[in-house]
Each structure stands twice: as C-alpha cells, then as structure tokens.
C-alpha cells in the first residue's frame, strides 16, 4: 500500500536518514517545515519528492531547485493525504 511520508525534521536530524531508508519504491515523500532545508544541505541525496512552498519561500530556498523536487501548496498536500491510504509522520 503506497504510503505518504511527511517529514518536518531538519536534514541533520537522526530521523531524516531513517525516513529515507523507510521509503518504498511507490511511496511519496513530502518535506515540510525544517525538512525543506534538505534542498541546500550539502551532499544529501534526495529522492524525487515534494516540498511545501510556504516553507520553501519563508526560508528563501525557492531559487535552490533540486532536480526531482516539486513544489506543492497546502491544497496539494491535502490532495496527497487523500490519495494515500497510509500516512507516516516523521
């Protein structure tokens, strides 16, 4: 069952690598709050994922686009939670 993973921890938080390890092939990852810092954190390999636009803009990271990372708004996040039967919060 595809799982939606929502992480709000900074990339140097121990839970960040744990979350990446838990991602299955057909899962979806969304970066929110502190987790959007992963867009600029050095040498962090990010899988294709989403990042919450409001958090990206607050931290002035909108120019720091990373291949495979798509921006979504709050409405987009709601759609994702509706289309996944399982949600894991990190």
């Amino acid at each position: 069952m595809p799982t939606l993973h929502i992480i709000n921890k900074a990339p140097d938080h121990p839970r960040f690598p744990a979350c990446l390890r838990a991602l299955a092939e057909d899962d979806t990852l969304v970066l929110i709050e502190n987790a959007v810092m992963a867009l600029v954190f050095e040498s962090l390999p990010l899988p294709p994922c989403y990042a919450l636009r409001a958090d990206v803009n607050a931290r002035a990271l909108s120019e720091s686009s990373v291949t495979g990372v798509k921006m979504i708004g709050y409405a987009g996040l709601v759609v994702l939670t509706e289309t996944h039967q399982r949600v894991m919060n990190w």
């Binding site: 636009r53 409001a54 803009n57 607050a58 931290r59 002035a60 990271l61 909108s62 120019e63």
Partner: peptide
C-alpha cells in the same frame, strides 16, 4: 542570514 525570506504564508 539567507537573503529573500518571505514568511507571510506561515
């Protein structure tokens, strides 16, 4: 210190 922050959506 990153320039260009815009936090009104938060």
């Amino acid at each position: 210190l990153r320039p260009g922050q815009s936090a009104d959506q938060l």
